[in-house]
Design a protein around this nucleic acid. Structure first.
Lengths: 208, 208
DNA sequence: ATGTTAATATACTGATGAGTATCTTTTCAA
DNA sequence: TTGAAAAGATACTCATCAGTATATTAACAT
């Protein structure tokens, strides 16, 4: 193996990253439109203008591809809540910062979330377990936020866990009906859904 | 073909119905646990103690099986909202009657709804279109109910369509986390989620 | 320039599973 | 009882793909 300058290494890595990104993008488009089992690796390769071994060399097996696509959405959702909680704001402020960012993140990673929801059973058990753990963490952070709001009297809800699941459901479900080219813009939906959520739990609002 | 008495016909039909019901049940269990593509018709037949031609004779192809399973949940949800609206109650009363019945229906047809959500891409286009139309009708009935409540000033929400989708999402999402053998009973969840929904839209409640 | 290695394509294999043709058993009317 | 038809099992076919061994081309260090 020839020694490479760090400059060249950098380019190599960037090229590799680009290939992975494009491959994941093409695969996500196809998995989203047709479903995982109705998409062959040859289809994905064709859409990239390459052939199957290209995918195996750069990403790995079909289920590796799926796992990497699924990770995007859960991963970024978790980052949002953790980032908000890290600031140590009060429950109302936290929720008001979290809600619009969360909805926007979900809509932006629409395909990833939809694919994860639909195709979880096609993940390798190892990947499924890893992602389920991320999801579990996410739910439990939201629950923690809601509990704090209940304790402080700022939220009108009773059951923090059930409310967390309902809230997550209301938002996650949007990945099935949202169309980027629809009447409402991403921003309008994010703001509408987010008002809905905030109004949902806050006890001091008459109309949202 | 020998002429059969109507009595005998009745038994025949009941037997056929029983076979279909059992077959759909076994298939739903397997599709729910492993996913559609990870379940073979031989698996389904094995769980029924029969062989593949039994399924073809009584139901049809694998995707017919899927379509019939998916229809259960959407169908019964639609029935609930239509039944409630038929009574011509006010928006608040309608919502209060609808919510708990809807959640209970969804939880009872959990597998059907989860399978439909996950496996829609594996339906024949014809079946997919038919079921999508049922779903569209359902959303639009809920939207109508919410709009009535907004017009009468009883509901705190602004956008009836977005709220309908959020509400449906909050409930439908439960099919992914609900476990019949979990801590909370179906009734507890139905009541909790339903209070959440009602409190969500009503403007005259302090705490739900 | 040139030899070496990395990247990618071509062309294959092997397993799988939906759907079916055919054989066998059960049911039941007369 | 019997024979015809309905129900179902056995045993196949045939297409599809994930994954890979091998051949080819491109990149690049010296």
């Amino acid at each position: 193996m020839p020694k490479l300058s760090s400059e060249r290494m950098k380019i190599r890595e960037e090229v590799a990253a680009l290939k992975r990104e494009r491959t994941l993008g093409a695969a996500a488009d196809l998995f989203y439109d047709r479903g995982y089992e109705n998409t062959t690796l040859d289809d994905v390769a064709k859409h990239l203008g390459v052939t199957k071994p290209f995918i195996y060399a750069n990403i790995g097996s079909k289920s590796d591809l799926l796992a990497k696509i699924c990770e995007v959405g859960v991963g970024s959702s978790l980052e949002v809540i953790q980032d908000v909680l890290r600031k140590g704001l009060g429950p109302v402020e936290s929720l008001e910062e979290f809600a619009p960012r969360y909805v926007a993140t979900i809509l932006k990673s629409q395909k990833s979330i939809a694919i994860y929801t639909r195709e979880e059973k096609n993940l390798e058990p190892k990947d499924a377990a890893r992602l389920a753990e991320l999801r579990r963490q996410f739910v439990s952070e939201i629950e923690r936020l809601l509990r704090a709001g209940i304790d402080s009297g700022a939220f009108r809800i009773k059951d923090p866990r059930l409310s967390a699941l309902a809230l997550i459901g209301a938002v996650s479900w949007s990945t099935f009906w949202y169309r980027p080219d629809g009447k409402k813009s991403l921003e309008e939906i994010a703001s509408g859904l987010s008002d809905f959520i905030v109004g949902l739990v806050r006890s001091d609002l008459e109309t949202v």
